[in-house]
Structures are given as C-alpha cells and as structure tokens.
Nucleic acid binder design. Structure first.
Length: 452
RNA sequence: GGCCCUAUCGUCUAAUGGUUAGGACGCCGGCUUUUCAAGCCGUUAAUCCGAGUUCGAUUCUCGGUAGGGUCACCA
C-alpha cells in the first residue's frame, strides 16, 4: 500500500551558465523530495555535443551548491549511450520504431539514418498535479524523430529511458515542457514504461512579462553571487516566487521551506522576477549577519575600494564605519558603489569645500562663521577620549545648536566635516575623525568662508 | 497561424457564492529634535471584457480579449 519512494530529477543541460530558471527548477524539486524524504537525482543532459560544455556543467553544480542544494545521485547522459542504444534496438525489433532509410546522409564517411517512432496517433491525456487533466491530439506529431542514428539518441528519448531506469516518480518542470509531455508519453508507452506523475509550474517572467531571458534581466546565478547577494536570500526569494507556503510567511530558512512545502501551493500563473523585492530579501538577510562577520566582510571591501580611489586606507577608521554602512546597503555591491561614488572619501582624506554650500539653507555666511567659531570653542573643551563618543559630542553642542537653530548650526558643522550635501550626522562623523582632525576641518571651513 | 497554458493593486500575492477585496515589495506623504540613510506611521492602487447560472458572483459555466509557452535530426 505504501507509495513508491519519491525520486525526482534535476536535469539541466550544460549549454550555458546556471540560469535563474534552472535554480528555481532545482529548488522546487529539491523541496518536494526533501519534504517526502525522497531522493534527488542530478542528471546532466549533455547529449548536445555542439553546445554542451564541461565548464557550464561545473557552473551549474557550483551555483546550486552555493544556494545550499545538494543531491543523492549524479548522472551524465553522455555516459549512458549504451542504454539508449539498447532501448532503441528493442523498439525497432518490436516494430514500434523504424530506421528511416530514405533520409540517409553521409557523415564522416558513414551512412547515418534517423530513427522515427511509429506514432499510433491517439489522444494522450495526462494529469498534471498543478493544472489537472491536459489532453493532446498526437496525430499532428507524425512519426517524429527519436534518434539521429541508432547510436545517437535525441533528448526526448534519452529523458524517457532515464526517467524509467532511474525510477523517477515525479517529473516537476517548467510549463515550457507541457507540449513535450505527450511526445514523451508516446515513447514511454512504446517502451512499456510506467508513467511518472507530472507537474508543470509556470515560467519565471522578465519585467516585460516574457520568459526570463538575458534581454529582460540578469539570468546567470553567478552574477548575483558576484554582486554579493547572500545565497540564503536568493534561494528564499526564488522559492517564494510562484509558491505561497500555507503559513503565508515570506522569509523562510531552507529547513522551514522543506517543512512547509506542498506542491499544491505552487501557483498556476507566471511571476515576474522583481529585482527590488530580491534586494529587500537580501537586505533582510544582511541585517541578520553577526556583527563580527559583517564587519570582516565590509572591511575587506572597504579597503579594496578605498585604496582603489587612491586614498590612504586606515583599518582603524574603517572598523568604525561598518555599523553606518550596514544600514545603507542592501547588497554588498552597494558598498562598492557607495565608495566608488566618493561618499566615504572624507573619512580617508580632507574634504574639498564648495564655499557657497558651507552655510546651508538656514544660515548666512556671516552667521555660519560665527557658529563654526563657537563650535570650535565648544569642541576644544572635550577631551580626546570623550571625543570617541558621539553622544558626548552631541550633548556638548546641543545647547548651543538649539539656541541658535539646529539647522543653522548643524549643517555647517556637518558640511565642514564631510564636504558633502548628504552624509551621516556630524556627531557620528566627528567621533570617527577624532578631535584633532575635527577642529582642523572646522577651522578650514571658517577660513574658506572668510576668504570670500 | 495550429496546439497548449494563464488572467486580483505597478510587481509578488491572500480570500470568499455575500468582506470596507487582506498582506508584502515599490511609489508617494508624514513623523523621527540639521541633510542623507535607517526606523515608525500613513496614503494611493486591483478582481481583463461580455453573457449565463444565482437572491447575490471576483469566485461557477460559456464566449471574447490579452499575455505567455510550444510547434527541430536543441535541450
């Protein structure tokens, strides 16, 4: 009475780097199998000698591992040609397929003849776990080709033989395969194989609603890895696209996804891959990284990028920055962009002032000079050690600032330190820069203003 | 074009034969004792169209429309 143990396959063809769609296919199969304590089979469908490359297979394996997926069995179709040949021969012997004599051609001095399936031309109906019954009239398929030659099986044939030999119970794949299914069922029936259960989920869409392709966005998993997406975040987003767990939670760990996975909760209509929401997921995961780990990664990137700008790197300064950096980025790449845009320059070099910007909108040049002079006096009274605490600096300045108008005082202060219209607050910057440096910059700003 | 699939805010989605059609992302606005960022609060926004069934359809049926997929000696 027990159902057969669940066995699913992840069958990419190594004709390109790991595609987001491939990752999704792998995730869905993986979740389904693990949910049912089943077996996951990775099958490299490398029967296309023209386009297939080992490096692509490697990229797919690396990318899926990166996402935290794994499998229990590994096969390559190129290593199973004997089985296809044998199956093909038996089909020909049974009279269910034939070598097409009139379509012979010469290749490398040998005659090549394609093999065609004798199509009984019936209606084929299969039950899709996601969509219900689907019926096709197969007469229009004719006696379709199943092998380039007896020694060289085509995709549909290899798939059917493999699925049977590997005892696949559930074929879960994108709905671009719906129209392939009747063809494969025909081969299956000719061979006398058992029919697996089918489930076709909708394709991932680009912003223009067509099948996600290079034109509609970045499709290589590796490029997301390179931009610094967190694998768990990427996995989570891709899994949730087109699947709503019963709990309706969005943020889920892999074990939680396995726990909740039910193939009935896969949607019927295609979902647009939205980079903004992916970024939100990633930000979410970035926030969860332990401070130490985050700091280490941030420090590495900062050192590289700051040095690249020709500035003098200081790890002491850098170490004080990553708390601030953390709330400004969604993906590691953002940190690179941030630095590349010069938004952190003033921590590692003297700012250059646009004199007219020093006063800000809330004070005139004369009053800005006055405020900066007052600030210089106030700050001079703070000890160097106390200067390490931004709250202390704030407390010292606050009285004066509220009396004179926070905007009027604080903008010139902040601008004197950063030289930028936009930056973190002056107290934070001051605490990082240290007393000596801060007083020097305030003085420079006064000088610049007075020179006008 | 044939065949097949699909159809709720801009996007991802929830729900039900009877709801003010809910949530998330984004957008916009406000608050957060200067700007930016973050955070908090809030606003805007959807059942493709037309018939039918029904007391009542977004939900069920049919038709249309739109979008997508697929039509290889690729996978």
């Amino acid at each position: 009475m027990t159902e057969r143990d669940v066995r699913v396959r992840i069958p990419p063809s190594p004709t390109g780097n790991c595609h987001v769609g491939t990752a999704r296919m792998a995730i869905i199969n993986f979740l389904f199998a693990r949910r049912h304590s089943g077996t996951v089979i990775f099958r490299s469908e490398d029967t296309d000698k023209e386009r297939g490359k080992q490096e692509f297979e490697d990229d797919i394996v690396i990318s899926l591992h990166w996402l935290g997926l794994d499998w229990d069995e590994f096969y390559r179709q190129s290593e199973r040609t004997d089985m296809y040949r044998e199956a093909l021969r038996s089909l020909i012997d049974l009279g269910k397929a034939y070598v097409s004599e009139e379509e012979s051609k010469k290749e490398a001095g040998r005659m090549i003849r394609v093999v065609r399936l004798k199509n009984p031309g019936t209606n084929v109906t299969f039950t899709d776990l996601i969509r219900g019954d689907i019926t096709f009239d197969t007469t229009e398929l004719g006696d379709f080709v199943i092998a380039r030659s007896v020694d060289d099986a085509l995709y549909h044939f290899a798939v059917v033989v493999d699925d049977a030999l590997m005892k696949i119970t559930h074929v879960i794949r994108g709905d671009d395969h719906i129209s392939n299914t009747p063809r494969q069922i025909l081969i299956q029936e000719a061979l006398g194989f058992e029919r697996p259960k089918y489930a076709h989920y909708p394709l991932l869409l680009g912003a223009d609603k067509s099948k996600l392709s290079k034109r509609t966005g970045d499709t290589a998993v590796r490029s997301y890895k390179e931009e610094g997406y967190i694998p768990e975040a990427f996995l989570n987003y891709i899994a949730i696209l087109g699947w709503t767990p019963a709990s309706q939670r969005e943020i889920l760990s892999l074990p939680e996804m396995i726990e909740e996975f039910d193939i009935k909760d896969l949607h019927k209509s295609g979902a647009v891959f939205d980079i903004e929401k992916l970024r939100w997921f990633n930000r979410n995961y970035l926030q969860k990284i332990p401070a130490e780990e985050f700091g280490q990664a941030a420090l590495g990137i900062m050192e590289e990028m700051v040095s690249e700008r020709g500035l003098k790197w200081s790890s002491g300064t850098g170490a004080q920055l990553y708390g601030m950096v953390r709330e400004r980025i969604s993906v590691w790449k953002d940190l690179r962009v941030l630095i590349d845009d010069g938004e952190l320059d003033y921590f590692f070099s003297e700012p250059r002032y646009n004199t007219i910007d020093i006063p800000g909108k809330k004070s005139a040049p004369e009053s800005a000079i006055k405020h900066l002079n007052s600030l210089r006096e106030i700050l001079a009274n703070i000890s160097e050690t106390q200067f390490r605490n931004q709250e202390t600096i704030k407390a010292s300045v606050w009285n004066y600032a509220t009396k004179e108008g926070t905007g009027a005082v604080l903008w010139p202060f902040r601008y004197a330190l950063s030289g930028l219209a936009r930056s973190p607050d002056p107290f934070f910057i001051a605490s990082v820069l240290g007393k000596e440096c801060v007083i020097k910059r305030v003085a420079s700003a006064i000088r610049a203003l007075s020179a006008v």
